[in-house]
Simulated assay, not measured.
Amino acid sequence: MTNHHTAPTPRLAEATWFKSSYSAGAENCVEATPLPGGIALRDSKDISRSHLRYTTAPWTAFCAGITTGTL
């Protein structure tokens, strides 16, 4: 997968990661942390694996697609 983040990345090991409030204790979740100019995502079951980073524009487009049902 292509890395879409271009801004300098803060130390993600020290970042504050969160799960969606819709997870309701589910084990198969994605965690997110805001970044300057974007967002990082990781698998909550295995946080040692690589994360994905997206700048604001592609992340906003993805969320809009989910909201409108086009994805």
Rank of each mutant, 00 (worst) to 15 (best):
residue 42 R to S: 00
residue 1 M to W: 12
residue 30 V to D: 00
residue 69 G to L: 06
residue 6 T to I: 13
residue 13 A to Q: 15
residue 46 D to E: 13
residue 5 H to P: 06
residue 3 N to V: 05
residue 58 P to A: 05
residue 64 A to E: 13
residue 50 S to T: 15
residue 6 T to F: 12
residue 22 Y to N: 05
residue 60 T to F: 11
residue 15 A to Y: 03
residue 65 G to P: 00
residue 38 G to H: 06
residue 60 T to E: 14
residue 56 T to S: 09
residue 51 H to G: 00
residue 3 N to W: 08
residue 49 R to H: 12
residue 43 D to K: 05
residue 22 Y to R: 08
residue 64 A to D: 13
residue 36 P to W: 09
residue 3 N to I: 05
residue 2 T to A: 11
residue 57 A to W: 14
residue 28 N to H: 13
residue 40 A to H: 02
residue 26 A to G: 08
residue 2 T to S: 12
residue 57 A to K: 15
residue 63 C to M: 14
residue 10 P to G: 02
residue 3 N to L: 04
residue 61 A to H: 09
residue 39 I to A: 01
residue 55 T to Y: 13
residue 20 S to R: 04
residue 38 G to E: 07
residue 34 P to I: 02
residue 35 L to P: 04
residue 37 G to V: 03
residue 15 A to F: 03
residue 55 T to G: 15
residue 17 W to L: 01
residue 12 L to D: 04
residue 50 S to F: 14
residue 24 A to V: 15
residue 71 L to W: 12
residue 39 I to Q: 01
residue 40 A to K: 01
residue 62 F to Q: 08
residue 56 T to P: 02
residue 69 G to K: 09
residue 70 T to F: 09
residue 5 H to Y: 14
residue 46 D to R: 12
residue 10 P to L: 02
residue 27 E to W: 15
residue 70 T to D: 08
residue 1 M to G: 12
residue 1 M to R: 13
residue 71 L to F: 11
residue 2 T to K: 15
residue 35 L to C: 05
residue 66 I to T: 09
residue 37 G to F: 06
residue 23 S to E: 06
residue 28 N to D: 14
residue 45 K to Q: 09
residue 1 M to T: 11
residue 12 L to T: 04
residue 35 L to R: 07
residue 45 K to P: 02
residue 59 W to M: 07
residue 3 N to A: 06
residue 23 S to V: 03
residue 47 I to S: 12
residue 57 A to M: 13
residue 25 G to A: 08
residue 25 G to P: 07
residue 45 K to C: 02
residue 38 G to R: 07
residue 7 A to C: 13
residue 69 G to H: 10
residue 37 G to C: 05
residue 47 I to N: 08
residue 45 K to M: 03
residue 7 A to S: 15
residue 67 T to K: 15
residue 53 R to V: 00
residue 71 L to N: 12
residue 14 E to W: 08
residue 9 T to P: 10
residue 47 I to F: 07
residue 67 T to Y: 15
residue 33 T to F: 02
residue 48 S to D: 11
residue 17 W to Y: 02
residue 6 T to Q: 14
residue 1 M to H: 13
residue 11 R to L: 14
